[in-house]
Design a protein around this nucleic acid. Structure first.
Length: 266
DNA sequence: CGCAGCGCCTGAAGGC
DNA sequence: TGCCTTCAGGCGCTGC
């Protein structure tokens, strides 16, 4: 489940591979979720950027290739076409590198947009601020959360309040901020604590090269190590690292959720 | 218009 | 051993 730290790690791995390279040939799975990949033949990559969990590849013709890793998406450079059955798109670059997009479960997506017109990608179009941007401050977060009555965890996962937080880092941030994932209204002080928690769990995730639970790999094929630093996600049934109360599993917004019933009050 | 709920996908893991 | 069921889940879309 690639979230911001995983996508950021992939972005950093891709930069030197694609920047200033021209696409000589491309192919894809027939699904519309991947077939736009072939429309960039002839264009040159100006670089690679990230917004939330989306990878943005600006092209020299004014368009952008947009990629979302979904649950199991991976970018891998190879010198010969791989025999992997899960290659959903590939691009042959002008230095001979073949960049493959592999995605076992096909939850990922490749799109091509004109300029920065993201209207064909609703989540990207309505994406909230980057968590490391100065405009993501405590007052903004408090106001943004107040505008909806949905559970706080559901709001974090919506991508509208802040960009890039998925199920793992949402559970981690809420645990750190002592917030119940089903809380509906929080104080300004709690909002500020949550802002700090979000920034720190994401920053540490990046420093650890992302969280590899099963499928996630960086561009060079290596695993992240952040899975060894999780305090909350997936820890239901184990003692809370803070107060030793047994952590509890629940379902919020159809997502598996873990929290500590003792130190995460509503 | 906002939001809840569904469908998309496949492989791993557990039950019998 | 092998078959069947359940689970994982981000996001686009639909319909209330």
């Amino acid at each position: 489940m690639p979230e911001l730290p995983e996508v950021e790690t992939v972005k950093r791995g891709l930069a030197s591979i694609v920047t200033d390279r021209r696409v000589e040939m491309a192919g894809s799975h027939p699904s519309i979720k991947f077939s736009p990949a072939t429309t960039v033949v002839g264009a040159r990559f100006n670089g690679v950027n990230r917004r939330g969990k989306y990878l943005l590849f600006p092209l020299d013709d004014g368009r952008q290739l947009v990629a979302h890793l979904g649950m199991t998406g991976q970018f891998r450079p190879v010198s010969e076409p791989s025999s992997s059955a899960h290659v959903r798109a590939w691009w042959r670059l002008d230095d001979g590198t073949i960049l493959e997009f592999r995605d076992v479960r096909r939850f990922g997506r490749i799109a091509v947009v004109q300029g920065d017109d993201y209207s064909s990608l609703p989540t990207l179009h309505a994406l909230g601020p980057e968590p490391f941007d100065p405009d993501f401050d405590g007052l903004y977060l408090w106001k943004a959360l107040r505008s909806s009555s949905a559970a706080i965890k559901t709001q974090l996962l919506s991508q509208k309040v802040v960009a890039g937080v998925g199920n793992i880092y949402a559970d981690e941030a809420l645990w750190r901020a002592h917030l119940h994932p089903d809380a509906r209204r929080i104080t300004k002080a709690k909002a500020e604590a949550l802002r700090i928690a979000i920034i720190n769990v994401l920053k540490e995730g990046i420093e650890n090269g992302g969280t590899t639970l099963r499928d996630y790999r960086s561009v060079d094929g290596s695993e992240g190590s952040n899975q060894h630093s999780l305090d909350c996600y997936g820890q239901a049934g184990s003692p809370c690292p803070r107060c030793s109360t047994v952590m509890v599993r629940s379902v919020i917004g159809a997502r598996a959720t873990t929290h500590c019933p003792s130190c995460q009050k509503r």
